[in-house]
Amino acid sequence: MKIAVASGKGGTGKTLVAANLAEVVSRTLDTTLVDCDVEEPNLHLFFGGPATSAEVCVPVPVFDLEVCDRCGKCAGFCRYGAITVLQDRILFFSDLCHSCGGCMLICPKGAIREEPVRIGQINISHPSSLLTLVSGILDEGQPHATPVIRSAKEHSMSSCLVIFDAAPGTACPVVETVEGCDACILVTESTPFGLHDLRLAAEVADCLGVPAGVVINRSDGRDRKTTEFCTTHELPVMMTIPFDRKIASVQNRGELISRRSPEWQGRFSGLFEQCRDLAGVRR
């Protein structure tokens, strides 16, 4: 089973939910936790241990100017504006290239080949006997997060349970993370911004056909607008975490609230059972 943790708004508590969920279920189930927030991965702060690394590369075109006759078909094909063919040279913007390979296919002269270029890496560690942590890390200055997320997902496919911690927002990195999952936990907070972005994130999950449920974090008890929204859109509220300084201070020390508290262990086990229900997985 694959569970994505997403939010829309940043800072609502995706990492808190993903880390504690993985901590609790990995006591009995073979679990892989995947940090798909590759621009700012942080799950490794909660789980120690040495990591092994693998490079993530993407193919980019290289032009043979001896063979190229400047016909410009590649530039015309490239919808990302990465290639401009001039009479005396070719301008290539690697930041704009999406590594689709189309320029190479369309070149009538066979003047384009591809070369791999590093854009990030995957770190893999084993914090406990049944838990594997896979962290996607995008190199600084690289614009395309999705190939690193895709690679992180590929590195996690051997476990029976995989939990993906998504990036904030609702753009390509989130779509890449949530696509193909069996259930999606949407973490929100009871603020107007939290609700605004929950609406967008719920729409993404819906478009991708992934059943979703909601966790309300930092609740001050006045969650009526959020719960009304959830009722209207048939999103179960699976868990409510109170606004509590003690929770924040545990988290800020790199600790997990479920590590020592049986109460929180029980609550996160309950969250996992509800995810199973969402995904329609038989127990």
């Binding site: 530039a75 490239c78 919808r79 990302y80 504006g81 990465a82 401009t84 001039l86 301008l91 913007f93 930041d95 704009l96």
Partner: peptide
């Protein structure tokens, strides 16, 4: 367009054999 519009628009100007562009803000690409 979603991205890369600067170089694509520049290609239009090249195709039309433009000599001078008068605009407010031209991006780096």
């Amino acid at each position: 367009g979603a991205g890369g519009v600067g170089p694509k628009a520049a290609q239009v100007l090249i195709a039309h054999k433009t000599n001078v562009l008068i605009s407010g803000a031209v991006g780096e690409n």
